Amino acid sequence: MTFRVERKQEYYQALIEKNSQYEGQFYVGVKTTGVFCRPTCPARKPKFENCEFFETAKQALLASFRPCKRCHPLSHPNHVSEVVRILVKAIETNPEKRWKDVDFQQISIDASTARRQFKKRFGMTFVEYARARRMGIAMKQIRGGEPVIDAQFSVGYESSSGFRDAFSRIMGTAPSSLESIHTLKASWLDTRLGPMIAIADDEALYLLEFVDRRGLEREIERLRQQTKSAIIPGTAPPIQSIEMELTQYFDGKRIEFHTPIRYLGSPFQQKVWEHLRNIPSGATQSYSALATLVGQPTAYRAVARANGANQLAIIVPCHRIINANGDLGGYGGGLSRKEWLINHEKQTR
Rank of each mutant, 00 (worst) to 15 (best):
R169M: 08
R116E: 13
R133P: 01
K120D: 12
G252A: 03
A324T: 03
A63G: 01
F118H: 05
T32W: 01
L293K: 11
G144T: 07
Q225E: 12
I342M: 08
A111E: 14
L290T: 04
G144E: 08
K120G: 11
Q248N: 05
Q9A: 14
W340L: 04
R222V: 02
K58V: 07
E256F: 01
T227A: 11
L328T: 06
G308R: 14
I220H: 09
I199G: 11
P77N: 15
I91R: 04
V155G: 00
R85D: 12
P46A: 13
D101G: 10
T348G: 08
F257K: 07
E10K: 13
E96A: 05
Q270G: 08
C68T: 04
Q285N: 00
P267Q: 02
R134S: 03
A299M: 03
V211D: 03
A111L: 10
K120Q: 12
V127L: 11
G172V: 08
G333K: 04
I16E: 15
H72I: 02
Q9Y: 06
P42V: 10
G144C: 09
D201H: 08
A130H: 05
K253W: 06
V83W: 01
L15V: 02
S20D: 03
A304L: 10
D165C: 05
L264S: 06
A306I: 06
L207I: 03
Q152F: 05
E345N: 10
G123E: 07
E6G: 06
F53P: 11
I322S: 04
I199S: 05
D190Q: 04
N19G: 13
R254P: 04
A43N: 12
N50P: 00
L62F: 07
L328I: 07
A111D: 07
K271M: 10
R85P: 01
R116H: 10
F118S: 08
R349N: 13
T173C: 15
E256D: 11
S177A: 14
R164M: 02
T247N: 03
F153I: 02
R7D: 14
N325S: 14
E339H: 13
G156D: 04
H319W: 10
Q9S: 15
R143C: 01
L61S: 01
Y22K: 07
Q141D: 12
Q311A: 07
I315W: 00
Q225K: 12
F48P: 08
E217R: 10
I342W: 12
H344T: 07
A132S: 11
V35Y: 14
E243T: 03
P317H: 09
F3Y: 09
A302K: 08
T183H: 00
F54G: 12
R131I: 00
F163W: 10
S112H: 11
F48R: 14
E243G: 09
